[in-house]
């Protein structure tokens, strides 16, 4: 079981709700994933065109909601977005993300730390999306973040765990849960993150745009559970030279 702040999760797969082709596909895939924490975004209401209400089915499925601050470019905007999200979704949990650059969507560490400190002080359960920077993750922990969410690769890139060496340091040093977020493109990437000792992973694009999102959700759920089981079992170490698995008894010599 994974505990973050006041909540306990039996599934270590967190999921995003974006990019699904339709509401039914999203609800079915998220249900199949077994995920108990799903992200949502906020937008200014379009007075002409109504957006689909996806909130009701998520709540009906018993999902915990994790609103994000996507769209915020500064700490000030992110704090405002977090407070709006708290009203909209009636939760003090927030995925803090501040990425001013639309090309790579890389998180701004300075604005993120500033916003995290203020939000934590105001009683938010803050889960910041950050680069895989071990020093920054420690600083975020010190200002009161409930978890840290370092990236594996840029958002939506599906490139996998490109930051492995730094994730390992973050995991080794962290006293709060580490959720690997962004870049996870396949179940094997998720399994790797879990084998490294990540407490959970957050997956969105790889499930939402899969040929069969429901089947892909199941594949991710199995990979995450498998990776975690392997981590808990204690992986065998790596060495450069071969080490025989069969006894070398020379029984054919002189035959």
């Amino acid at each position: 079981m994974l505990t973050i702040a006041d909540k306990t999760f039996s599934s270590r797969l967190f999921t995003g709700t974006g990019k699904f082709s339709d509401k039914k596909s999203m609800v079915d895939a998220l249900a199949a994933s077994g995920s108990q924490l799903v992200t949502m975004a906020l937008k200014r209401v379009d007075m002409q065109n109504r957006d689909d209400d996806i909130l009701a089915p998520l709540i009906a499925n018993g999902m915990n909601l994790l609103p994000n601050t996507s769209g915020a470019r500064t700490a000030k905007e992110a704090v405002f977005a977090a407070k709006l999200a708290r009203e909209a979704l009636q939760t003090n949990w927030v995925k803090l993300e501040i990425h001013p650059d639309p090309k790579y969507l890389l998180p701004d560490p300075i604005e993120t730390l500033t916003a995290a400190e203020e939000l934590a002080r105001e009683g938010f359960v803050v889960l910041p999306y950050v680069h895989a920077d071990p020093v920054l993750c420690k600083r975020l922990e010190e200002v009161g973040c409930a978890a840290v969410m370092p990236l594996g690769a840029p958002i939506g890139s599906n490139k996998g765990i490109r930051t492995q060496d730094f994730l390992e340091i973050i995991i080794e040093q962290a006293n709060v849960p580490v959720v690997v977020d962004a870049g996870i493109g396949s179940p094997s990437h998720a399994a790797l993150a879990m084998e490294l000792g990540a407490d959970a992973v957050l997956v969105n694009t790889a499930i939402a745009v899969a040929g069969d999102p429901v089947a892909m959700s199941r594949a991710f759920a199995m990979a995450v559970a498998s990776g975690r089981m392997a981590y808990e079992a204690g992986l065998a170490g790596q060495v450069q030279q071969a080490v025989a698995s069969s006894p070398l008894t020379a029984f054919l010599e002189g035959a």
Binding site: T17, G18, F20, L42, K43, D51, G156
Partner: peptide
Amino acid sequence: IALFQAIAGG
């Protein structure tokens, strides 16, 4: 008045 709503997002 600025009116906001929760939508799908990652």
